[in-house]
Amino acid sequence: MAEQQETRERWGMVVDLDLCTGCNACVTACAMENNIPWVGEEEAGYGRNMFWIRVQRTWEGEYPEVSPAYQPVMCQQCGRAPCEPVCPVFATVHSEEEQINLQVYNRCIGTRYCANNCPYTARSFNWYDYTYQIPAPMNYYLNPNVTVRRRGVMEKCTFCVQRIRAGQEQAKAAGRTLQDGEVIPACAQACPADAIIFGDLSDPESRVSKAARSQRGTTLLEELGTQPKVTYLKGGGYYGG
């Protein structure tokens, strides 16, 4: 069977903060998809949660005009990622193919340099064998498409690369190219407000490209020159109304 012509996607994400309600469904969805272990109350108190995506809540103003701002933050899949050059064993590498940052678990030796260098604190470290402590039969729901990480390994959001691969594979097997919206990460799939849009930024007509061009668009800490692939659309009713 003839393979389709190689296409090169540039995966990106847009988070509409005006639609985001802060409900944390994305956090749970991500955990259930990516075999992310829970760490328990005490470990969570030490800040050792394994979230690949977290919803940051900040307060603005004074009572009674005080208002929360919610922002889901995951790995921004930087074009020039600060985590990559500091890894001594090349476990944190850039994917030329998918234009995302990869974490190769079997290479990682747990120096945690990458986490220290990440301006978004998007990386989490397996301080213990959290996943292997899941009591049977609860381990039955672990996703076979995602590696179960061991102690001493760094991990982070992958843009659900297993879903990207599965989508590409499916399209190839059917002899066609990927359609916009065919690959969705778990967070965007679950988001009840549909505030997370995922897709191919190299296609100007894709939903994510159109959303990323919005006037409300901004990227996190862009002054660092990290070239993030995640665009946030400002909320709070600063427009229209």
């Binding site: 802060g22 944390n24 749970t28 829970w38 760490v39 919803v55 809540r57």
Partner: peptide, 10 residues
């Protein structure tokens, strides 16, 4: 456990 670990939003 994952509902316990999911933070209360506010």
């Amino acid at each position: 456990p994952w509902l316990q670990e999911t933070p209360s939003p506010s």
